[in-house]
């Protein structure tokens, strides 16, 4: 099993519903977020191109945040999920330093927090909150090992990319381009 997410940059409108939906679903405190939206503009008026991406932890296959964690609080779980066990985390910040995507933050309670691919929902057969909220339905989630999953299907038919593959982290957050 290998969970992954794909986001269609051609449909994403940058509305940020994925961000609020995550905030309410996961009780992310006001002033913090587990996901965010990036707008990239290129060109000179009126020859312009725009890409909009909803970003979050890439649930990396080769996760430096797991490697550098001194307590094992950051760890891999079934499906390749990279998770943080709050009561093992000492809040040293090493994993924050190690993430090239700046996907982690220090929760006001002290431990480190980040996107979990909504493990608690996925476990019971649901989809992540952001995926289910997105009004443009531009987010695809599922198991890459299952050729019938939403994400496998869309990655088969569409061109995609990952962010900074050169950092060598093996990201599993794809962007359809």
């Amino acid at each position: 099993m290998r969970y992954a997410m794909a986001i269609d940059t051609k449909k994403c409108v940058g509305c940020s519903d994925c961000v609020v939906a995550c905030q309410t679903e996961n009780h992310v405190p006001i002033g913090y977020c587990r996901d965010w939206v990036v707008e990239v503009m290129d060109g000179t008026y009126p020859q312009l191109e725009m890409e909009i991406r909803s970003e979050r932890c890439n649930q990396c296959g080769n996760a430096p945040c797991v490697r550098c964690c001194p307590t094992g609080a950051s760890h891999f779980e079934e499906g390749g999920l990279v998770l943080v066990t709050a009561d093992k985390c000492i809040g040293c910040g090493a994993c924050i330093q190690s993430c090239p995507y700046d996907a982690r933050y220090s929760h006001p309670d002290g431990h480190v927090d980040k996107c979990t691919f909504c493990n608690h929902r996925v476990e019971v057969g649901g989809k992540p909150a952001c995926v289910e909220a997105c009004p443009t339905k531009c987010m695809y989630f599922g198991d890459l090992d299952d050729p019938g999953s939403d994400v496998s299907k869309v990655l088969k038919t569409r061109k995609s990319k990952t962010l900074i593959p050169e950092a060598g982290t093996e990201p599993y957050l794809y962007f359809l381009i």
Partner: peptide, 22 residues
């Protein structure tokens, strides 16, 4: 805690916009 769309509603098809979610 949270507000989510009603799946049978034609206005939203089970999905709110960011303002509705917020």
């Amino acid at each position: 805690w949270k507000i989510v769309g009603n799946e049978i509603d034609q206005h939203c098809n089970g999905r709110f916009c960011p303002r509705g979610t917020g």
